[in-house]
Amino acid sequence: MNSPRYSVLKQRLLGLLPILAILVLWEAASRLRLASPILLPPFSVAMERLVELTVTGELPKALWITTYRSFIGLLVATAAGMSVGLAMARIRSVRWFFSPIVAIGFPLPTITLLPAFTIWFGTDSESKIWLVAFTCFFPIAVSTFEGARNMNKQLMWSAQSMGSHGVALFARVILPASVPFVFSGVRVALPLAVIVTFVAEMVGGGGGLGYLLIYGFRFLQTPTVLAVLVAVLVYGVLLDQLLLRSRLAFLPWDVGDRARDG
C-alpha cells in the first residue's frame, strides 16, 4: 500500500487534521458551554448563518462591492504604477523626480489617509477605490522599475543591433521583459488592496464585506461575524489562485514563481 499516490493522499489528509480539529473543538467548546455561545456560537450555527446570508443575497452583494472596489483600485494602480515604473527606468528626470516619492511611499501606512480620502471623495465607493489605488501604486511602481532596470541587457542589445528602436524596442522587448515584475508587484499589492478596502468599509461604511463584519460586531451578531470571516478566508484563497492562474495565462514563458512554488 505504499504507492506514491497513496502516500500523497495520506499527506493531504494529515494536513486537514489540524483544520478539522479546530472546527471540532470550536463546535464542542460552544456546545458544552466552555465558551460563551454569544462570543463563540457553534461552527454549525455560523454555517447556517452563512447559508442564510447567501440566500438573502446580502453576502453576494457585499462580496461584489468589495471585489469591485479593490479591483478597480488595483487596476488604476497597475496602470499608473507600470507607467511610472517604466518611465523611471528609461528616463533620468522621471527617475530623479519619483525616487524619493516612491522610497517614502513604499512603507507608508496609507490607511492613515482614510479620513482625508473620505472628505475628498465621500463615503461611497469612490474614496475606497482611490485609497486602494494610492496604496497599491507604490509596490507596483517599485517592482516594475526594478524589473525594467535590471532586465537582461543582451535582449535589448540584440534587438537594437537588429534595428529595433523607440516604440518597437519598448513594446516588443522592454515591456514583455518587465511584465513578470509587474506581476510580482501586483502579487504584493493584491492583499494590500483587500486589506485597505476592508478597513475603509469598516470605518467609513458604504456597504461591502468590511461593513457586514463591523455591523455584526456592533450588534453582537457573532454568527454573522464568523460567517463572513469564513467567506473571507475562502475569498482570499480564490483571489490568490486567480492571480497565479492569470500569471500563467499571461506569461506562459516565465516560470519564475512557478518553479519556486514547487
Binding site: G210, L213, L229
Partner: peptide
C-alpha cells in the same frame, strides 16, 4: 500538519479579524 493551515490563513486579509 501545519502547511495547509498556514497556506489557508496566509491569503486572509488580516484586518478582517479585527471585529471578531
Amino acid at each position: 500538519l501545519s502547511y495547509p493551515l498556514v497556506a489557508l490563513t496566509y491569503t486572509l486579509p488580516k484586518t478582517a479579524l479585527i471585529p471578531i
